[in-house]
Design a protein around this nucleic acid. Structure first.
Lengths: 235, 235
DNA sequence: GGGGCCCTTAGGCGGCGGGCGAAATGTCGG
DNA sequence: CCGACATTTCGCCCGCCGCCTAAGGGCCCC
């Protein structure tokens, strides 16, 4: 009866996330973009020196990656797995009370539409997945033939996403809606196209995204043009 | 350009997991059972007083629950969400090198079959899900009609699992196999039946489970009795 | 109801780690 | 090349947190 078995030791990674300053940095990077060290220092509310030390640790722990560009160094999350851990943690963490009117406005914005690292989430993400299912384009873990045609026609590189080592098209549980939206390589590819087409644009609040007029029309047309091939709403 | 938006603050929860002793305690509870405070002190390698202090913090942070029974206090994880966070963290954590022969034997045992909180994982879990899919009993997010018959016949309370507030039958990504096994309320219900029938029993290593002879026969018969209704192996 | 076991509380010690300012490194723009 | 800006490195202080031993409840059993 001794040390028993060695699991993966999670403590060091958790310790990296456990510091409030580092947590703020990681949260700021949750929208998938790369931010400069100075910006991260500002959002975390610490001096540049302090932020630099934290970033060095996060880098060493492989939670973030860095790309040097001139005199700036842009940091980003090391991958979607990191984002998923942060989302999972957020799911069991106390949500601090919303205070100001402005904050509640921003909170509503995030509930409406936001990115979950690199794919669409919030009511918009959940709604999109619903319409894909209702239209018979997606069956819970893969796109149907009709779905592949639909998305390819939109400009989504479905084959490329399928070839990725990342999971192809898993459902990703949404911690505000408590319902699923489209995640994985396909979710990211679709979201990329939504931005390229200008159907969604990034809002002023970090992870918020906004449906444009073009997007409203485009999505409506996209799902209206096809007759409903299957009316088996998944409970 | 001020405080921006308040996300759920994940740092306090991460800090609870970040201490090696607490991480050891949580990992020990990962098999879903409740352990007495003294046992947890032993597996973590600290004095009873130290363990008690840690358990008080975990309790305060709602990561564990406690049930008093006589002069013992049994602690367990507060829910499957907690287990999922720990699994996700393990997925991005460095796996410590296996040292002794005994440890590598145990590691192989865990890779073969183990519990993932309250449902079957490892090669056994992945294999079970594969056979459910191959037989047309499960379609990636729900059981088919045939699947409901099969499992109900086995004694699984499918309706009860479906009524649960927990997700019904999601695929759960396995961090050793990097493939999916059956999770959620249904995964737990199925696993419960497997234990009840004596098809699997718990091994000596905490999360390890072992296929019994009865289990080998039972599973073989279960999947052989039905002809393969569908031969569309999911890539 | 008294002794033994399980667990918690109290107190004190030691170390790790995050904070800052100042100076060094590196890069861009003239 | 030189000054401006972004980032890192260095040296130092300070507070927090985990550890132990010892003592204090609670519960069981004889």
């Amino acid at each position: 009866m001794e040390p028993i078995v060695r699991d993966a030791d999670i403590a060091p990674v958790a310790a990296l996330i456990a510091d409030p300053t580092r947590a703020a940095i990681l949260t700021a990077l949750l929208d998938g973009r790369a931010l400069a060290a100075g910006e991260l220092a500002r959002v975390a509310g610490v001096s540049a020196a302090t932020a630099s030390a934290h970033l060095a640790k996060l880098l060493d722990g492989r939670l973030v990656g860095v790309v040097r560009q001139g005199r700036h160094r842009y940091y980003r999350l090391a991958g979607h797995e990191i984002a998923e851990v942060l989302e999972a943690l957020a799911g069991i963490s106390a949500r601090p009370p919303v205070r100001s009117l402005r904050q509640s406005r921003q909170a509503r914005q995030l509930e409406e539409a936001r990115t979950c690292y690199d794919h669409l989430a919030g009511r918009a993400g959940v709604g999109l997945l619903d319409r894909l299912k209702e239209g018979g384009y997606y069956d819970g873990h893969d796109v149907t033939e009709a779905g592949e045609r639909l998305l390819s026609g939109l400009g989504v590189d479905v084959a490329g996403a399928r070839a990725s080592r990342r999971r192809f098209a898993p459902e990703c549980l949404d911690w505000t809606e408590r319902r699923a939206h489209l995640g994985g390589a396909l979710g990211a590819a679709v979201t990329e196209v939504l931005f390229e087409r200008g159907w969604y644009r990034r809002g002023s609040v970090p992870r918020a995204v906004i449906l444009t007029d073009a997007g409203r029309e485009g999505l409506e047309e996209l799902f209206a043009s096809k007759e409903l091939t299957s009316v088996t709403p998944v409970t």
